[in-house]
């Protein structure tokens, strides 16, 4: 599976995320409180809502519509109304670039 150059490391504030679209799919790229970068599917598994407008708290991303929560490191659904886990993708940093291994 290809590694895709998604963004620069300084494109995302720490404890925040951005949306990244590639090949017709949408992803969310996170800059965690631990300084590491993470990637998940970009849409909430509950309803068709972009997570990029949500709130990152510690290692949790909260959907902006219904406050469903996921652990963005593992994709685990943590709070109703989300019941289905979020898909995650491997991330690596090369220099000042963030690369995501997309499906």
């Amino acid at each position: 599976m290809p590694w895709i150059d998604a963004c620069a490391t300084d494109d995302i504030d720490q404890e925040d995320l951005i949306r990244f679209d590639h090949a017709g799919a949408t992803y969310a790229i996170y800059h965690g409180v631990d300084g590491q970068f993470y990637a998940t599917a970009g849409m909430c598994t509950h309803e068709h809502v972009h997570l990029c407008d949500g709130l990152v708290m510690d290692f949790t991303i909260e959907c902006p519509k219904h406050n469903g929560q996921f652990d963005y490191r593992t994709g685990e659904a943590k709070r109703a109304p989300v019941c289905v886990n979020l898909k995650t993708f491997p991330v690596r940093v090369e220099g000042s670039r963030v690369l995501v291994e997309v499906a």
Partner: peptide, 9 residues
């Protein structure tokens, strides 16, 4: 909890 999620959707 669920009815209100629907109310917002």
């Amino acid at each position: 909890r669920w009815s209100h999620a629907r109310h917002h959707s």
